Amino acid sequence: MISLIAALAVDRVIGMENAMPWNLPADLAWFKRNTLNKPVIMGRHTWESIGRPLPGRKNIILSSQPGTDDRVTWVKSVDEAIAACGDVPEIMVIGGGRVYEQFLPKAQKLYLTHIDAEVEGDTHFPDYEPDDWESVFSEFHDADAQNSHSYCFEILERR
């Protein structure tokens, strides 16, 4: 099963200049909980913004210009990325925008964090048809001392 995991502000903004323009430790914990011990696929820009392999996960970098870091697996196509994951129950696609666009048609599940923030962004989550998805989990949280904005975790499964 292919799943996408993303944090989205208003207007589906997911990033600005290779960074997330908010401070939500709870979302980072949600991300870790849902990706640990699963292969993660990301684009080169996302890889560069993280700066290191995510521990406890097979890191697969999709790029037309593969790098030389041998701590991760470099691939040039969506099919190659899927094959590099091996026989696993769930593959997690973690961004960025172009990689989400490439995998959305193949995805069966979306793990979304909806952030109540209007922020400037240069990267967006692809538009998706809500009628194609069923919400199977939703959990709202107010902003607090650690988390700069209110947010809602949601899991959607393709109908």
Rank of each mutant, 00 (worst) to 15 (best):
S3F: 01
S3I: 05
L4F: 15
A6G: 07
A7P: 01
L8T: 12
V10Y: 05
V10G: 06
D11C: 04
D11M: 05
R12T: 03
V13E: 04
I14A: 13
N18L: 14
N18S: 05
A19N: 15
A19L: 05
M20F: 01
P25F: 12
A26P: 06
L28P: 00
A29K: 05
W30I: 03
W30A: 05
F31M: 05
K32W: 02
R33G: 03
N34A: 06
L36E: 07
N37Y: 10
K38M: 04
K38G: 05
K38R: 12
V40C: 12
M42C: 02
G43R: 02
G43L: 01
H45F: 04
H45V: 03
W47R: 04
W47E: 00
I50T: 05
R52V: 12
R52M: 15
P53M: 12
P55E: 11
G56Y: 07
K58M: 14
K58L: 12
I60G: 02
L62Q: 01
L62E: 02
S64D: 08
S64H: 08
P66G: 14
G67W: 05
T68N: 13
T68F: 14
T68H: 15
R71L: 09
V75R: 10
V75D: 00
C85R: 01
C85G: 06
G86C: 07
D87K: 08
D87F: 12
P89R: 07
M92L: 13
V93L: 02
E101T: 05
P105Y: 07
Q108D: 07
Q108F: 08
L110A: 02
Y111L: 07
I115T: 06
I115E: 04
A117M: 07
A117V: 10
A117Y: 02
V119F: 02
E120Q: 11
G121L: 01
D122G: 01
T123K: 09
T123W: 00
T123Q: 03
D127V: 13
E129V: 10
D131S: 04
D131V: 04
D132A: 10
S135M: 11
V136F: 08
S138P: 00
S138T: 10
H141W: 06
D142A: 11
D142H: 12
D142I: 09
D144P: 02
D144Y: 03
A145T: 07
A145C: 08
S148E: 00
S148Y: 01
H149S: 02
E154T: 14
L156Y: 15
E157F: 06
R159P: 12
